[in-house]
């Protein structure tokens, strides 16, 4: 019953795991549990949205017309594409295709950057029109009049897209970290859990946007 670690200890195996499979499965379960907490956290904001929509349907319908459908649509396509390249990156890591792994990671980071740039222009437009959250709302100074209590809608808009935007920024951070590690050639068919887990996180960011887009920008 001697410890197996002495015989052959794979490079990436932490001391308290017996096998790489056990380690990978643990990391992945941990990631899914983390995603569960993320979903529940966002669910609070979505519930807030549904309640406000239930209370003030006319206001929400009128206020959402001021959001740019085009910008939202472009961002949706951008995020879906980045999700696609991320999935390809994970696949490249699985089969040990170093070149495609790095290329797809760079694409993913690039699309995330595009998303944030579009977001920046969207936010600037809202700031210019005085469509700010809560007590800072003063769109009527700029000649926009929305019946009811539009400051709540824009408050929610900034909370939801803002929290999502923070997740995109964090995503850019961890993707860059993975990219640097990938460039050192750390990942291959026997060890790619970090790529996979960051991929899962990135797909979740995409998932949240898949719901944010129709609810905030499209639904009449």
């Amino acid at each position: 019953m001697s410890a197996i670690a002495t015989a052959e200890h794979p490079e990436h195996l932490a001391h308290h795991f017996d096998t790489l499979e056990q380690q990978a499965a643990a990391a992945k379960l941990g990631m899914w549990l983390f995603l569960a907490t993320e979903i529940l956290m966002f669910s609070g904001l979505f519930l807030g949205y549904f309640i406000i929509r239930m209370f003030y349907p006319e206001m929400v319908l009128e206020a959402h017309e001021y959001l740019s459908k085009t910008a939202g649509g472009v961002n949706t396509v951008v995020l879906i594409t980045s999700s696609f390249t991320m999935a390809l990156a994970v696949r490249a890591a699985q089969v040990g295709d170093q070149k495609n792994l790095i290329r797809n990671l760079i694409f993913t980071i690039g699309f995330a950057g595009v998303f944030m740039v579009v977001k920046y222009f969207e936010y600037s437009a809202k700031f210019e029109h005085g469509m700010l959250p809560g007590k800072f709302y003063h769109a009527w100074d700029h000649g926009y009049y929305i019946e009811g209590l539009p400051h709540i809608f824009f408050g929610l808009y900034f909370c939801m897209t803002g929290l999502h935007g923070i997740h995109v920024l964090v995503g850019i951070g961890v993707l860059t970290w993975i990219l640097l590690r990938a460039k050192k050639g750390e990942f291959g068919p026997s060890y790619y859990t970090p790529v996979e887990n960051v991929g899962l996180y990135w797909h979740l960011v995409d998932l949240v946007w898949i719901f944010l887009f129709p609810l905030l920008y499209l639904v009449r």
Partner: peptide, 25 residues
Amino acid sequence: ASLVCMYFMHLKYDDRYNVFVFIST
């Protein structure tokens, strides 16, 4: 969302407990 989960996130081929975690969420 289901397409992303099942194919991009590999939930279709994943450990059943991970699927369980996701669905119970």
